[in-house]
Write a protein that binds this DNA or RNA. Structure first.
Length: 595
DNA sequence: GTAGGGTTAG
């Protein structure tokens, strides 16, 4: 019998498989001959014979015997999987992980990897704590155990059980097991994808603390996560940290940060994005197509297509060719600006330069036509797509369905929905959202609720947008309390309310003249981790104005400017109509001349 | 194995 010493006894006083196994051992000593026959059958892989012989022996007793007799680890594993399948049983965690331990000592890593991949896919989820207990009593080689835990974390992440991967990572720290970037990088990536940025930051800090040595990929993933969460200063700090670790940021690191500024930055964000670009050039990192595409898209989304065009010229002067993504951003930018004709010209230019428009190009143009009240043209464009060898996708249908709804052509919208079903494209939540919003605009509440039921029947779950549509509708009808009930339902369904949700509720209460309730919603919004945006301020400022509280409204205006939020057209309209026309001079007055 | 483009709600 091998000597098993639990080196973690001090901290984790869970000993001991020996007590439990005494009985098993007695069994083996009394029937030693039988057992050696069985072991030999395993060695020869005579499974059917083994099955008949095992009628009087417990399968787990044989597994134990294989482990203690130090049989070939691969064979032990083969017996383990065979017996689990054959007898529809699960071996204990202790024996399972002892098997993996023996494989780790024999450096049969790929066997462990594929076993763990299956192990975690199993619907029977063992508590991570039990697994760690089994690992720590199963073997005393720190290195072998660490490798098993590393592979376990990776297996969880691969099977989309990120929460368990995260827990295993945390516990590995308690036990002092040393993980590697092989499991930590995918874990970081998965946490970013699930928007669990707090957890991602924990893993990153722990990696440094535990001296796991983040590499370039780790840093890039972390920078991306922080950018997606709007933590741009922290992202810049991480880039500084990299140098301490002797890792140089590359073009991807900087592109990620530039994109962060474009998408999450506040006042003067494009200026800052440009500053990051200059910084990277100064550090000798050459911008590539992606860098320029990010900037072009950023300027377009910022409503500044002419600046985007200048970036395009700069890109070409540096010998970089615009690609489909470049053109798609510009086409979309022009369409949002109401310049569908120019967008079409650009599309032709794109074709002239040898690039083939893809489904995204077409969708952008169809959307542009819809938004500019050219639904018939949009429909023609839609029908042209198959002729050009481009298949419609769900988004194409959704765009045109939304176009029909907004043009008041609900019947056409439903007809198109039915057509997509016939063509094997499944409506998704967005399809329903477009239709529900269309029905709400028409005031056909009954049909809207009916569609909600239909969604559930099709196993489609209402999302934040669905709730936003319904909440907004109720608020506009003066039924804020009913809207609040839907809001509570959202949290019960683990849906994270968005800015729109809170803003609609505040608007509803403001319209009812209930400023207190509106401010309560704002408090909840901040507790929910969302900061007030321009729309929030517009809603509240208007609410206070309507109540004649112009001084308070003015304070809100100041607060908004101090937070670096940029007033929009609605803000100016409110200020003009509700304050200036009534003889009140707001602090924002000076800005009004710029509009 | 880390970066970029299209739809729905204010």
């Amino acid at each position: 019998m091998p000597k098993k010493v639990n080196i973690f006894c001090g901290k984790f006083p869970h000993v001991i498989i020996f007590q439990r196994n005494k009985q098993t051992l007695r069994f083996f000593s009394s029937s030693c001959r039988t057992s050696s026959i069985l072991v030999e059958l395993v060695a020869k892989q005579h499974w059917s014979k083994l099955k008949t012989h095992l009628q009087n022996t417990k399968p787990n007793a044989l597994l134990h015997q294989l482990l203690t007799s130090e049989a070939d680890p691969e064979l032990t594993l083969r017996y383990l999987t065979w017996s689990q399948k054959e007898f529809k049983l699960s071996h204990s965690l202790e024996l399972t992980f002892r098997t993996l331990y023996s494989l780790a000592c024999a450096r049969k890593y790929s066997k462990i990897r594929s076993f763990l991949d299956n192990f975690v896919k199993n619907e029977k989820n063992y508590p991570v704590s039990s697994i760690f207990h089994a690992i720590s009593v199963g073997g005393d080689s720190f290195c072998a155990n660490s490798i098993i835990v590393d592979m376990l974390v990776l297996a969880y992440v691969k099977s989309l059980k990120t929460h368990l991967g995260y827990e295993a990572f945390r516990r590995a720290g308690d036990y002092g097991f040393k993980l590697s970037v092989i499991s930590c990088n995918p874990l970081l990536h998965a946490l970013v994808k699930e928007r669990k940025i707090g957890n991602m930051e924990f893993v990153y800090k722990e990696m440094i603390k535990r001296r796991i040595g983040p590499n370039l990929i780790s840093f890039n993933v972390v920078v991306n996560g922080l950018c997606k969460a709007g933590k741009l200063n922290k992202a810049s700090d991480v880039i500084e940290d990299m140098k301490v670790w002797g890792v140089s940021p590359n073009v991807i690191t900087y592109n990620t940060l530039v994109d962060g500024y474009c998408k999450m930055g506040k006042i003067g964000k494009m200026y800052k994005a440009d500053a990051v670009l200059k910084d990277m050039v100064a550090k000798g990192i050459c911008p590539n197509e992606v860098t320029f595409n990010i900037l072009i898209d950023g300027f377009c989304k910022d409503g500044n297509v002419s600046a985007a065009m200048k970036v395009l010229a700069e890109m070409q002067s540096q010998g970089l060719n615009p690609n489909v993504v470049t053109y798609n951003s510009l086409i979309n930018g022009l369409c949002s600006d109401g310049k569908v004709d120019e967008a079409t010209v650009l599309r032709d230019q794109m074709i002239g330069s040898g690039l083939k428009p893809n489904v995204i190009t077409h969708n952008a143009l169809i959307n542009g036509l819809c938004k500019n009240k050219m639904v018939n043209e949009a429909s023609d464009s839609f029908n042209d797509m198959p002729k050009q060898g481009i298949a419609h996708n769900v988004t194409t249908y959704n765009i045109l369905i939304d176009g029909y709804c907004k043009a008041g052509r609900i019947e056409d919208a439903f007809e198109l929905r039915n057509a997509m079903l016939g063509r094997g494209i499944c409506p998704n939540v967005s399809t329903y959202n477009c239709l529900i919003a269309g029905l709400c605009r028409k005031g056909d509440m009954e049909a809207a609720w009916h569609l909600m039921d239909e969604m559930v029947g099709k196993d489609l779950r209402a999302d934040v947008v669905t709730y936003n549509i319904l909440i907004d509708l109720l608020c506009n009808k003066g039924e804020s309390r009913r809207a609040m009930k839907l809001f509570d339902e959202m949290s019960r369904k683990a849906l994270n309310p968005s800015h729109v949700t809170y803003n609609s509720l505040m608007d509803g209460y403001c319209k009812e003249g209930n400023l207190r309730a509106a401010l309560n919603v704002r408090t909840r919004m901040e507790k929910g981790g969302r900061r007030a945006n321009v729309v929030t301020y517009n809603v509240l400022i208007k609410g206070f104005c309507k109540k004649g509280k112009l001084e308070d409204a003015n304070k809100l205006l100041n607060e908004m400017l101090e937070k670096g939020l940029v007033p929009n057209r609605t803000t100016y309209e409110i200020v003009r109509e509700e304050m200036m026309d009534k003889g009140f001079v707001p602090d924002i007055e000076g800005h009004l001349y710029n509009v």
